[in-house]
Write a protein that binds this DNA or RNA. Structure first.
Lengths: 216, 216
DNA sequence: TTGTAAATATTAACAGTGTTAACTATGTTT
DNA sequence: AAACATAGTTAACACTGTTAATATTTACAA
């Protein structure tokens, strides 16, 4: 029935429609629950049709990953008009944390899950495009840190290494939060504080206060 | 055949043997590849037998997680005899990073994977024992930071919040490394350095140098 | 318009997965 | 010996990703 009705509808952009269906499923239910059969049923096609447009499931997931990196890069490039480098650094951190909260599944895809990474290595080697957005984001961080150093912050530290450490801290906060460890630590009264949403902000504020202190 | 031969062998400690088989599989192949059927075949029992000893797959994985936390706690408690608090903090960081490298699958189980956490919330509520080891580890960190502060480090920072930030940084380094992002950043020549094993050490050294600077 | 080749989509199937229900031995207790 | 609980089994369900073979539709030349 469904198969018959959609036949008179447009059948172009099928590749995109597959991706859209996959995205909806993925963002709502996560990687595991996003099965080829569910995607197929969402677009009213047979499961095997999907293999005419994507090599395999990881190919789809990898394409979504690219999208995630693009979104993050876009959010970052909106911060280029923040002149003060330290303020920009703060804004970048908040943007990153916010992204990890609002786009949790994307974040896992981009930085945690091994599936898209494995696909990437097998198919593309090391030269892959989606990472360009990631690389650009990292370079933006390095550039900002360098500017901060010119303004008197973080003196005597290797710029790129320091950037990596800043990324680590924010990434660590994101993932500890995403996986419930921060909430847990609060619930066990190891840290006395308000609710889970606020503690992340408080932790980041502490971090900024901490960074601010590293003047020459 | 196998089923008949093992019958005259001891059939006690089966729960433990299941766990051992699961552990071998899990540490070698990871969570996905550790199927109930493979575990069963390793101990020469029918797959359904396992359900007589464990509620489900996540029950097994959760039991392994407990073991992981115990191992880490043991490694940490070996550092209690380091008197200088800052030296102890450094040792803890190195121990943590080393643990994430040498016990990668354990680490993912303990801090990243959602499966054992979900099991835990459904079955045990919030009061769970394995976390006690984790909580103890965190408290050990808080204690060490507090001692550092008494020695003049990290003045004016909330002890527990600062501990969380230190954990975040080291956890961030671990996970970025585990998931290939640090190697990637190096390969893209974003950071000029030796091989992937050494850059993690270099990054940690930078972090220590950074922390050392935060004197009163 | 018809015939043929290419593109596109489908069904059937394989080899797996976690998990449950029903059944069969085995050993213990009355 | 009869009843019962325990331990282990087989069979099955409802899934999964993926491939091969088959059918259908489209495009294009005669």
């Amino acid at each position: 029935m469904g198969i018959k009705e959609r036949k008179e509808r447009h059948k172009e952009d099928l590749r995109q429609r597959i991706l859209d269906a996959a995205k909806v499923l993925f963002l709502k239910e996560g990687y595991e629950a996003t099965s080829i059969r569910k995607i197929a049923s969402a677009i009213e096609f047979s499961p095997t049709t999907i293999y005419l447009y994507y090599k395999d499931k990881n190919d789809i997931i990898y394409t979504l990953q690219k999208e995630g990196f693009k979104v993050l890069r876009t959010k970052f490039s909106a911060l280029t008009n923040v002149d003060d480098p330290f303020e920009r650094l703060k804004a970048m951190g908040r943007t990153y944390l916010q992204f990890s909260i609002e786009n949790r599944e994307f974040y896992e895809l981009m930085f945690i899950m091994k599936e898209p990474l494995e696909y990437l290595q097998k198919v593309c080697g090391i030269e892959a495009e989606q990472w360009d957005d990631g690389v650009e984001a990292f370079n933006f961080l390095v550039y900002t840190i360098a500017e901060c150093q010119r303004a008197g912050y973080f003196k005597g530290h290797d710029t790129k290494m320091f950037s990596l450490l800043v990324w680590s801290t924010v990434h660590g906060l994101s993932t500890l939060n995403m996986h419930g460890h921060i909430t847990h630590v609060v619930e066990k009264q190891l840290i006395e504080l308000k609710d889970g949403a606020q503690i992340l902000d408080a932790a980041f504020d502490s971090y900024i206060k901490f960074l601010e202190q590293i003047k020459g």
